[in-house]
């Protein structure tokens, strides 16, 4: 197996173009497991950890542009205030060691429906900055990025350079079901993001369909039925209907981690609860930090 180790972004793109069979690797928390267990046998590995351009994040207008090589640990430590949904999701990834290595860029590259960062990216309307040596940069709305189980809209000569996530315009919450209390892959997960100024709510569903999903009908329902100006408590009927719509938007299956019926049920509960927390925060109560 060839091991390609570019140190600049241009070299990385050139290597990608020259070796379409090369598998990009960042933290290696997914790729190395697959190699060790002989699940994948790529012709080459394209190690992106030496590319300095990927290792930082910066504020870019109303968004944060996160380099594809920024590990979860830094998102938690440095972006919890501006991207609370993504930071909460990052906090649920693996163990401290995994969070020191793993990246949102890698999570997108793997495009597993169970990836923890996908729901908050969907809920907050993030875009993926993909680039190729031949055609330059293109912005892919994250809702169009996932095309199937472990498949994405990336072309064979493209690499993920960065993820652009709008700075949270309102409360955001992420919740994930697992059958133990840490270091667990999602049985299902859910993210909600409120944008009170635009009277919109975003959603993201994980591990309950062939790809990460948005619950568009549920989003429209909230846009129409939340008392955006009133500031009163959340109407329980609205919360329950929202839960039902989220559950209805998913297409879960029975597998070794859980049943479809349980996933549907749990998504309804998570949707209702996360909306409740977001609404309480919006209406003036203190938001709670994931600790």
């Amino acid at each position: 197996m060839e091991f390609l180790r570019p140190t600049t972004w241009d070299d990385a793109l050139a290597a990608r173009a020259a070796h379409p069979g090369a598998l990009p690797i960042q933290g290696g928390t997914d790729v190395m497991v697959e190699l060790n267990f002989d699940v994948r046998r790529p012709a080459a590995l394209l190690d992106l950890t030496g590319v300095a351009e990927l290792r930082g994040w910066d504020a870019d207008g109303d968004a944060i542009r996160i380099g594809a090589g920024v590990p979860y640990a830094r998102i938690i430590a440095e972006l919890g205030g501006r991207l609370p949904g993504l930071a909460q999701a990052a906090r649920t990834v693996g163990s401290p060691q995994i969070r020191n290595r793993g990246t949102v860029g890698g999570n997108l590259g793997a495009a597993s429906p169970a990836g923890d960062s996908h729901p908050p990216l969907l809920a907050s309307g993030a875009t993926v900055e993909a680039e190729s040596a031949a055609r330059g940069v293109r912005e892919i709305p994250v809702g169009e990025f996932y095309t199937g189980p472990k498949r994405s809209a990336l072309e064979p000569d493209e690499l993920i350079r960065a993820i652009r996530v709008p700075t949270a315009p309102g409360p955001q919450y992420f919740a994930k079901i697992g059958t133990r209390n840490a270091m667990v892959i999602a049985v299902c997960s859910f993210a909600v993001a409120l944008d009170p100024a635009r009277r919109r709510a975003g959603t993201g569903i994980g591990s309950a369909g062939p790809t990460p999903l948005r619950a568009r009908e549920a989003e429209d329902f909230l846009a129409a039925h939340l008392d955006w100006d009133g500031g009163g408590p959340l109407d329980d009927v609205v919360a329950r209907k929202f839960g039902d719509l989220v559950a209805g938007a998913a297409s879960p299956i029975d597998d070794v981690r859980g049943t479809a019926a349980y996933r549907g049920h749990a998504l309804g509960v998570l949707a209702r609860r996360t909306l409740g927390w977001a609404w309480r925060e919006h209406t003036g109560q203190t938001r709670r930090e994931a600790s």
Partner: peptide, 10 residues
């Protein structure tokens, strides 16, 4: 649920 934040006590 721990930090996966499935409940705040509910």
């Amino acid at each position: 649920g721990g930090v996966a934040q499935t409940t705040h006590g509910e």
